[in-house]
């Protein structure tokens, strides 16, 4: 693969989490354990038991313009993988390289402050997403029109209905034309009319020739959209292949 064609490169990425099992701890006990080699060993083992590898030795390359789907059961590490690529998490081991600006549509409206008005939140959430002031200024009307919230611009977001908040967040997130688009389930938010509109917009973005990383449990949409499929199982790559992996995965799930 030529260097300039490569958009994302993961090399032996592993991600370890602390399960956060609550254990009784007291200073006294800790002090006593310090001098008891048996207990110290037990503590080390407990620590190991407490660990959870969400990703284990995952490597793959993605070329410019590829639409890659990720499948696997709950807890297989799909969302963690997307977060690692987006740079939200730094992998415990391994290397991640992404060449291009990333639009992570993982959680929308992360930057909202409920006390501020919609107008103020467009700027705040935009800044959190990494947009510049000029970009938001120029796209402001587009955001407001798409969200259909012009009459509510100066109302604090805490007085919005949840559907209105989701519409605003969606409109802010989708104004950019990213080189790498990361999608965790196709979002269709709001009422029926807006759902159709937001789905169409996402399809536009995915089909628009950008590089896409796409997680979904709807195998139909993966089949429809993706050129390449990565099957994750307990944090490891089970298989990388074409659309036919979906059928294989489906068969295994039905047993």
């Amino acid at each position: 693969m030529k260097q300039e064609d490569m958009m994302i490169n993961l090399e032996n990425v592993s991600m370890r989490f602390n399960l956060g099992i609550e254990k009784g701890f007291s200073l006294k006990q800790g002090f006593i354990n310090m001098f008891d080699p048996k207990k110290r060993k037990a503590k080390k083992e407990l620590k190991k038991k407490n660990e959870f590898w969400a990703l284990k030795d995952v490597s793959f390359k993605i070329k410019r313009g590829e639409v890659v789907g990720f499948i696997g059961s709950n807890g297989a590490g799909k969302s963690t993988l997307l977060k690692v690529v987006a740079g939200v998490m730094k992998p415990t081991k391994g290397k991640v390289n992404a060449y291009g600006n990333i639009c992570p549509m993982i959680e929308l409206g992360a930057g909202f402050d409920p006390q501020l008005t919609a107008r103020e939140n467009i700027y705040l959430d935009g800044a959190v997403m990494g947009y510049s002031k000029e970009l938001i200024d120029s796209k402001f009307d587009e955001i407001v029109d798409f969200a259909e919230l012009r009459d509510f611009l100066d109302v604090p977001v805490q007085n919005f209905s949840s559907g209105m908040v989701a519409r605003l967040a969606f409109s802010i997130a989708t104004i950019v034309e990213p080189e790498i688009l990361i999608v965790d389930e196709i979002l269709s938010v709001g009422d029926i009319a807006f759902q159709a509109k937001s789905e169409a917009k996402m399809m536009d973005m995915i089909m628009g020739g950008t590089t896409v990383l796409y997680v979904s449990h709807t195998l139909e949409s993966i089949k429809k959209l993706c050129d390449k499929v990565v099957w994750l199982d307990h944090g490891k790559i089970r298989k990388i292949g074409g659309k036919e992996l979906c059928d294989e995965y489906f068969k295994e799930c039905n047993i």
């Binding site: 501020l116 103020e120 705040l124 800044a127 959190v128 947009y131 002031k133």
Partner: peptide, 13 residues
């Protein structure tokens, strides 16, 4: 810009 937004958010709130 983000820094500016965060500071002005604190002020407004």
């Amino acid at each position: 810009f983000l820094l500016f937004q965060l500071v002005s958010r604190d002020f407004k709130v």
